[in-house]
């Protein structure tokens, strides 16, 4: 299934080798083998496979990774563009810094957009 690759040169992923401590957490959490450890530092070996899930950034203890994390979902982009307030669970675009809690009535919209 190697031919399932998404668009090239779009990801916002950035790695700061100065800050990297080579712990390998990014290699461990990335679902698409974007990183590898080379001479005690992390390295981006497959940039175009990045889906911006944000796992690496979240688990980097040295704060060496930057990525605008989000869910690659067209329905969410449309809803956001139209200003529709969705509480749909995964189809939502938000910054990694937004609060972890969300309204309890999450569900109905996600059923419509079908993203969960």
């Amino acid at each position: 299934m190697n031919n399932l690759m998404y668009l090239k040169d779009v990801t916002t992923l950035k790695l700061d080798p100065e800050k990297c401590i080579g712990c390998g957490m990014c290699v461990e959490v990335c679902p698409h083998e974007v990183f590898a450890i080379n001479s005690r530092k992390a390295e981006i070996i497959n940039r175009d496979a990045c889906m911006e899930c944000g796992a690496c950034r979240m688990n980097c203890p040295a704060d060496a990774i930057r990525v605008d994390a989000g869910v690659g979902c067209a329905a969410a982009v449309i809803n956001t563009a139209l200003g529709i307030q969705t509480n749909s669970c995964c189809c939502v675009i938000e910054s990694p810094d937004s609060p972890p809690d969300f309204p309890k009535d999450c569900g109905e919209t996600s059923q419509k957009t079908g993203c969960c």
């Binding site: 399932l4 690759m5 998404y6 668009l7 779009v10 990801t11 916002t12 679902p31 698409h32 496979a49 990045c50 889906m51 911006e52 605008d68 994390a69 989000g70 869910v71 690659g72 979902c73 067209a74 329905a75 969410a76 982009v77 449309i78 995964c90 189809c91 675009i93 957009t113 079908g114 993203c115």
Partner: peptide, 20 residues
């Protein structure tokens, strides 16, 4: 078909925005 990006396991938000 474009809406299937939300269910897929490898699309990024930046990519979806670009194609849209």
């Amino acid at each position: 078909g474009m809406n299937f990006t939300g269910a897929s396991t490898y699309t990024s938000l930046s990519g979806v925005r670009k194609e849209m």
